[in-house]
């Protein structure tokens, strides 16, 4: 990840019980594809975010497998159902073993 930058999540702070909400996420990351060469002609090794997950109160909302064809700074938009108040957990897994996490609460009302 680009140092100093944090993943971003955009979602409502509250929803009606059982409502569907839209969540937008973005993580700053170059998503080095492994297809590019440096000025000396050497292949720049692949280094991407390869998995993104979103869970609500421990249950899966979406689990995404990413390949090098996903753009740099991968962003996602998806829908979740919110039956009760709780916490959304967002996790990004990188090729280099790094794991980036974020959590955001949602209230009912």
């Amino acid at each position: 990840m680009i140092s100093g930058d944090k993943p971003r999540v955009k979602m409502p702070v509250s929803a009606a019980a059982g409502a569907e909400i839209t969540i937008k996420t973005l993580i700053p990351h170059p998503m080095e594809s492994g297809q590019r060469k440096d000025s000396d002609g050497n292949t720049i090794p692949r280094s991407i975010i390869n998995r993104f997950t979103c869970e609500f109160n421990g249950e899966s909302v979406i689990d995404v497998r990413l390949e090098p064809s996903v753009s740099a700074n991968p962003d996602f938009e998806f829908a979740a159902t919110v039956p009760e108040a709780g916490v959304f957990n967002f996790t990004w897994y990188a090729d280099d073993g790094s794991v980036y996490e974020m959590a955001q609460e949602i209230a009912i009302g």
Binding site: E55, S60, I62, L66, E67, S69, F76
Partner: peptide, 24 residues
Amino acid sequence: PTPEVATFNFGPMAGRRFASTRIR
């Protein structure tokens, strides 16, 4: 060069089966 782009697996808490992203 590699045709796979992304796979979205929807869990029990997913809303409508929709996803959006940006690709190369």
